[in-house]
Structure formats: structure tokens, C-alpha cells
């Protein structure tokens, strides 16, 4: 808790003084442009990615999409939403497998993520601001402490 408060303080101080003391980037949670979006909280997002929430308000299936487990964007997203790395989450998925529940589908590239989001009802994913195009719309923004600027050039 103290670490979190200190991190927030350093971020605010950095933005006021125009001297970044701690670098932060945004991850955008996105859905396909053609599909209805709804307001969701970070905890609801975590439940969708944990396959705990399987349908949305309209009764359509949520299709959470991940990047591959070693992707820096996936690592930052997982740390922000679950406070765990994708590797640490595998124990959770082992337990879910025993209940017949499978982890979200994973893709190898941002372009594959964009294509799936654009064509799959109920699909939800995450991208950097530099990756977003007209095929998707932003549901909300997550601020992470990791620097992800280098990921824009992939």
C-alpha cells in the first residue's frame, strides 16, 4: 500500500515539475468498433480475464484475448490487473482446468489482436495508444509503472 502511494506521489510530482521521477505508460483496454461496449471496472475486467464472468449484460459471451505470455505488454497488463505475472497465473489456470475452464485465447502479435477484436463479438483486449486504429474503441485506460514506449515499434 505504501509503495503504491509513493509511486502515485512520484508520478504526480513528475508531471507537475515536468521532470519525470518515475516513468508510467498507459495500456488501453479495447473492444471492436462494431460491437457494443459497456462500462466495466478493473475488477470486472479481471473477472472477465479469469473467466469468472463469462457473459456481458446483453448475455453475449466475453472473449478475452491475451498476447503471448512473454510479451512485455502482457506482463504489464497481468501485473496491473492480477498483481501477478502470467507464469504465476498458471497455478490459477491449473485449478480452473480441473473445473473445465480454459484460459483466454492468446495471440502472437498486436495485429492479430486487432483483427480478432474487430471481427469477434464480445472480444476484449489491450493495446498501447500507438497501436490503436479505427477498428477498435477504447473502453478504459490503465496506467502502469513499466515503460512500454519501446513496444510501439514492433
Amino acid at each position: 500500500m505504501m509503495v503504491h502511494i509513493l509511486a502515485r506521489f512520484l508520478l504526480v510530482l513528475g508531471s507537475v515539475t515536468h521532470c519525470p521521477l518515475l516513468h508510467a505508460d498507459d495500456i488501453l483496454v479495447v473492444m471492436g468498433q462494431a460491437f457494443a461496449s459497456e462500462k466495466i471496472s478493473p475488477k470486472q475486467l479481471a473477472n472477465i480475464y479469469r473467466r469468472k464472468t463469462v457473459i456481458n449484460e446483453a448475455g453475449e459471451r466475453w472473449n478475452p484475448i491475451n498476447l503471448s505470455a512473454n510479451d512485455p505488454l502482457r506482463l504489464a497488463f497481468s501485473q496491473k490487473i492480477f498483481q501477478q505475472s502470467p507464469d504465476a497465473m498458471e497455478a490459477y489456470w491449473n485449478a480452473q482446468y480441473f473445473q473445465g475452464i480454459m484460459p483466454p485465447y492468446a495471440v502472437n502479435s498486436v495485429e492479430a489482436m486487432l483483427r480478432l477484436l474487430a471481427t469477434t463479438p464480445g472480444a476484449i483486449g489491450y493495446l498501447l495508444p500507438c497501436h490503436v486504429d479505427k477498428r477498435v474503441k477504447v473502453v478504459f485506460k490503465l496506467t502502469v509503472s513499466e515503460s512500454l514506449a519501446g513496444e510501439c515499434n514492433r
Partner: peptide
């Protein structure tokens, strides 16, 4: 042996 079948968004057989 586990068998999971999800024929519909709302339905899951296990």
C-alpha cells in the same frame, strides 16, 4: 477424464 462442452454463451457441460 474431463469432458467440457460449451455449445452456447450461457451453457457449459462438464
Amino acid at each position: 477424464l474431463f469432458i467440457t462442452w460449451t455449445p452456447h454463451a450461457r451453457l457449459r457441460f462438464f
